[in-house]
Design a protein around this nucleic acid. Structure first.
Lengths: 232, 232
DNA sequence: TCAAAAGTGTTAATCCTACACCCATGC
DNA sequence: GCATGGGTGTAGGATTAACACTTTTGA
């Protein structure tokens, strides 16, 4: 079997886009950007960058996330390569996309305001340029599958969080709702959570304070590596 | 957010490799090839080909599978892109890999003998050139996950097959073994199988003939699209 | 005292697991 | 008649799904 390249074959460029998920306590959010310069000037896109021919794709994507959010957080997960011949008007560009999960906080929010980025509800993302709509669709699909095989939350939730927050997160990620008692029982049985002795008022409207939990980090890591079958 | 390409960025080449799984009734097999020409002359590789700058990646991969096996079969599934800077000594080559599942038959086997391909047991694949070992590892991982979410077998088994064949297939794919009665009950409950009134001798050594089943195609397709949670 | 969200148990149905023997046939 | 794989049922434990009321607090 021959696999021979001619100089003419080295004519493709690389790009990477990142679907950055965040969770604001009520909804899953996605980070979007506004395109500057041609083509698609002013269009909404996913945070994206050129990958130069001597650069590592994942390292470039990681740099992009850090530049945009100021955070280095949980590992990136590679999504499909998007490689349609005419997906980019400037030439053949193969986009290798990733997703990652980061914690939202106020500092992050205000940093973003200065830059040309904003968070939008994951189910309410406006139409984007290139094929970024389908990159996002695929990322949401992958997140759904991921939730059933490995825990999420460590990167998305604050260090201490309430049962309702984590339930809401799972509901957003999977797009359905759960019975409070059953959800609670299942999570506690998994022994993934540690009960703290702190209480908080979950929202301004909530009167009664609720208990805060945190992840058992060791267990969380084990489950992240080994995987499980969570049948929600 | 700017994403601007310079002419220097268009210097990358594309390749695609395919992990072709087959099932011989007893073991999962993978199709491997022998490299002709430099670099890695004579090395074992996955079936691979250059993707020219104006070619669609998936179509090229599909053409590769058809050329090698003479079959056009079940859809290809995209695996990760492999894009390490120095993965190919001739220059920066991004490999977008796929896996597919095809039926083994005798005609196919003898065609292969003429060409430079051969089937090897999926758990016994020799070391390969480039990063094809890790492409294969990832493909096996993906197949495992796939088995739990969608049915397999339609593309891997003959039209009519015995319970033991399909059980053996699932055992190979997941790398563990199941209780005969429990497996049978579960598959029958899924209503994925139609019982035929034919019987066969499964192997030469088997004395008693066993019943043949086929897939309920409509149900199979529904489950392929919708997915399920098979907790084997 | 009322509004709002927090928290809590039980039951019935289903599913999973583990387990061992007889059957039909070819040799 | 015996060796080979084909085929079958059950019981105990675990897991799920569905369900509604009381508690705590701030306003």
């Amino acid at each position: 079997m021959r696999v021979e390249f001619t100089p003419d074959d080295f004519q493709v460029a690389l790009a990477t886009s990142v679907v950055v998920f965040g969770f604001d306590g009520a909804n899953l959010q996605v980070l979007i950007a506004k395109k500057v310069g041609m083509p698609y000037e002013g269009a909404i896109i996913l945070p994206s960058t050129v990958v130069h021919p001597n650069e590592d794709v994942e390292a470039t994507a990681r740099g992009l996330v850090e530049r945009v959010t100021g955070k280095q957080d949980w590992p990136l997960e590679q999504l499909n390569a998007h490689a349609d011949v005419y997906r980019n008007p400037v030439g053949r560009v193969v986009n290798i996309s990733f997703y990652c999960l980061i914690k939202l906080d106020d500092e992050l929010q205000s940093n973003l305001k200065k830059a040309n980025y904003r968070w939008v509800n994951a189910d309410d993302v406006p139409a984007m340029a290139y094929d970024h709509d389908s990159v996002l669709e695929y990322a949401k699909e992958r997140l759904k599958r991921r939730v059933k095989r490995r825990p999420i939350g460590f990167s998305l939730l604050p260090k201490e969080f309430t049962m309702n927050q984590i339930q809401r997160l799972y509901e957003c990620a999977l797009g359905k709702s759960f019975d409070k008692r059953n959800f609670r029982r299942k999570l506690l049985k998994s022994a993934l959570l540690l009960e703290t002795d702190k209480m908080t008022r979950a929202t301004a409207r909530a009167k009664r304070p609720s208990r805060l939990y945190q992840f058992d980090e060791k267990k969380y890591r084990t489950m992240t590596l080994r995987g499980y079958d969570f049948v929600f």
